[in-house]
Simulated scan of single mutants.
Amino acid sequence: MVFRRSAVPETASAAALVVYDYLLNFGREVTLIWLSPWTYTKVLYLVVRYLPFLAFVIFIRIQLYLGVTVASCVWMYPVVVWATTVSTFTAEVVMMIRTWAVWGRDKRVAAFFLTLCCLYIGLATAGNVKFNRSVVFAEPPYPGYRGCLVVEASKSLTNDYSMLVVMEFFVCVLTAWSAVRSSKTGTTNRLSAIIHRDGILFYLYLLVGSVANVIFFTAPVIPLELHAAFVPICLALYTNLTSRVVLNIREVAREGRNKSAMETQLHDYRDDEGVQEPTVIPLSLRSRQKEFQ
């Protein structure tokens, strides 16, 4: 298969969307992330937020750079493939932790999500290795040609994308189930409402994007270059929506400080003087405290 269509417009649009969302939420990030203690949630957030910038720089280089050599394409393609995979998987982990939180840190939910993560890691590793080995590049067909010319690539990433659909489907279902339970028991509050709203709406968007990705990648009537154009868009959705989930949760928890004597380690931050203060959450979420440490 030969790539004949440039994906530069889609990549540039996705990169602009990531930059715009980053600037839009920069103030909240400084307050809620940068000034908070180092926890694994903070590390996951930084990976989701900043690794895509590296991916987009290389995306644009392999699509727009004038005079790029085949040797450069050979090392740039694997970097962008792995950066996209790691960023996407990290976003999935963040959302799974959040879903595990609203289920009261249920061990069965944790075991189920851990199984899905292991399956994805295995499929993604095998698929990425096979895909990177299968990509064949050609020399620029004419002077002034921009980017890398891909003349052949396997569809070994199909299982990766299918597994993403499965993971996102179950996250949506479990989040919606938790929202129904909370509504029936009368334990719904602003924090839980934010968690359920973001989880359901954001993951519906991601689920639709992942399904489209699988279709673009597997349908024989759709050229593979259309899939290559859609990947940056999905990456932008993952980094923007997942980052907003973390920021929204921490912001709501921070607003509720000093309104209760209860403390939580789920959301940490520092006030304007740099002194760490505990954040509070409602009693109904007390059992969900530690999953974002």
Rank of each mutant, 00 (worst) to 15 (best):
I194G: 01
G256W: 10
N248V: 00
S154C: 01
E255T: 09
L285V: 04
A176L: 13
S87A: 14
A16R: 04
V57E: 06
R98N: 15
F59Q: 06
S178C: 07
L204Y: 06
L201C: 11
L123C: 08
R288Q: 14
L206Q: 00
R5W: 12
A261E: 11
P140D: 01
L35R: 15
K155W: 10
A124E: 06
N132D: 13
R98Y: 11
V214C: 06
Y269Q: 04
A101E: 14
V252R: 06
L241I: 09
I194M: 10
L17D: 07
P282Y: 05
N25E: 11
V30H: 08
S134K: 00
T187K: 10
S72M: 14
L66M: 13
K42W: 04
T88E: 09
V2A: 12
N248M: 01
V48F: 00
T31N: 12
T187F: 08
F230K: 03
T187D: 13
R133N: 14
L46Q: 09
K259Q: 13
R181F: 08
R61F: 11
R197M: 14
T185W: 10
F217S: 01
D160S: 14
F26G: 03
F216T: 09
Y50E: 00
T185K: 11
V245E: 09
R288T: 15
Q63V: 04
A219H: 15
L54D: 02
F89A: 11
H196C: 01
A12K: 04
Y269W: 15
I58Y: 02
I194L: 08
F216W: 10
I233C: 04
N213R: 10
I195H: 10
I215W: 04
P143V: 00
Q293E: 11
E139A: 13
I222R: 01
N189I: 00
F170T: 06
I58Q: 03
R254Y: 12
F170G: 05
S156D: 15
